[in-house]
Each structure stands twice: as structure tokens, then as C-alpha cells.
Amino acid sequence: MDDDGCRGPVAADAPVALCEAHLAAAGEWADAQYGVTDALPSPCRLCGSRLGVRYPSGWLCAVCEWRYGDLPDDDIAPPRVDVVYYLRYDDRVKIGTSGNPRQRFGAIWHDELLAFERGGRALEQRRHVQFAADRFPGTEWFRRSDALTAHIAVLAAGVDDPWQLHARWLSEALAARG
């Protein structure tokens, strides 16, 4: 490499006209500047994600940006994130809300968590009104109508596991605390 520019052979498929040595140097610079997305060595302790960004100074979780290896402060209460949940039991769906869904689900007989929607009681009540024609009277359980199934499909689109979405909301709420 010389100060007058790149004089080595340039590969025909190179994205820019640089020799292999200069292209490698540019790649290393970009990795240091912008990080490299990769699998974390173990799940993020804050949100559970396995996706991270590696910098020369260390790893950050790609979901919540928690510095890999840092321990969450157990003295700080976790943030409250209210969600509307959709649980399936047989051919019925329960639309409810909770700030602590793991604990709440322990008290509800169900087959599957279908989706989460971020929101509290007001959103839950809107969903109860929206799907009132399918509601079992006096309960929070609904028939699996086409409209309800379509709504759940929209919420679940691109979400492999609703718990990962919930973990991201929790980590975002914690990060917003500062």
C-alpha cells in the first residue's frame, strides 16, 4: 500500500475499486465504526435476545442495547408494561390485560398465547366492544370469528414468539428510565 493510492489488482466483483488489502482495511474500519451484528455469546440478561452488535469495546444487545456482561440492578423494580393479551383455549380466545402476564397466565387455563398488544384497560375495553358480537356473555372469552382471527394475525405478523416482543417492550421501558 502506498500513499499515492491503490495500485494493486482490483477484483472484478469488488464493491469499490480498491485492492484486496485496502478493501480489507476499509472493512475493518467499518466494523469498528458501526459494529458487526452477530449472535451474542449468551442471551441478553435484560431482554433475553440472542442478537448482538460487536464493537472493539464490547458487545451490545441488538434489541435493547444493554451492554453485554453488565448485570441489571436488582434493587430497581422492573418497569410496568401493560399489555392486552390474546389466549386460546380450545376454540375460544380470551382478551384480557395485565402488567404481569406471566403471573396472570398461571391463573388462566389456556392452550396457547396467540399475541400481545401494548396497552392497558382502555385498549382492552375497545377490543371487547370491537368483537362484542363474538363475546360469550359476562366473560372475556370470544368465539374465534374471522374478524378476531384476522386481528390476531395482524398482531402476530413477524413475531415468532410473543414473549420476545414483551421482553423488548420491558427493555425499552427500562432504557427510557435513563
Rank of each mutant, 00 (worst) to 15 (best):
Y34N: 08
W141H: 11
R118G: 05
D161W: 05
I108E: 10
D2N: 13
A77M: 08
D146K: 14
Q164T: 10
A21Q: 13
D70I: 00
Y34S: 05
L114P: 14
A122H: 11
V129I: 12
K94T: 08
N100I: 04
L71N: 06
R102V: 05
H22S: 03
A77R: 13
D91V: 09
G119L: 04
M1L: 11
E117D: 15
E117H: 14
G178E: 02
L87R: 11
W66G: 01
G138M: 05
L87G: 12
E28Y: 04
G138L: 03
A132H: 13
L87V: 12
E117A: 14
E20H: 12
Y89P: 00
W109R: 15
L40Q: 02
G106M: 10
W109T: 15
C6M: 02
P72I: 00
D3L: 12
Y86T: 05
G58F: 00
Y86L: 15
G5T: 05
D31K: 09
F142D: 08
L113V: 15
P162A: 08
S171Q: 04
Y68S: 03
R118N: 05
V83F: 10
D4E: 14
F116E: 11
G120S: 10
A157I: 01
E65C: 01
L170M: 15
A176S: 13
S49I: 01
P41L: 02
A122F: 04
V10A: 04
C19H: 07
W66I: 00
H151A: 15
V83P: 10
T149H: 10
L46N: 11
S49C: 04
F136N: 07
R126C: 06
W109A: 14
T139F: 07
R126Q: 15
R45H: 02
T149S: 15
A17N: 06
V63S: 10
A26G: 05
G52F: 03
R135D: 00
V154R: 15
Q103M: 03
V36T: 15
L23A: 14
F105R: 14
Y55C: 01
D13C: 03
P162N: 12
W66V: 01
N100R: 14
V159S: 12
E112L: 11
Q164V: 03
D4M: 09
A122G: 11
R135V: 00
D31S: 07
P15T: 04
H110S: 12
C6D: 13
A157L: 10
R118I: 09
S171M: 01
I108M: 07
R143K: 12
A21R: 14
G5D: 06
S42N: 03
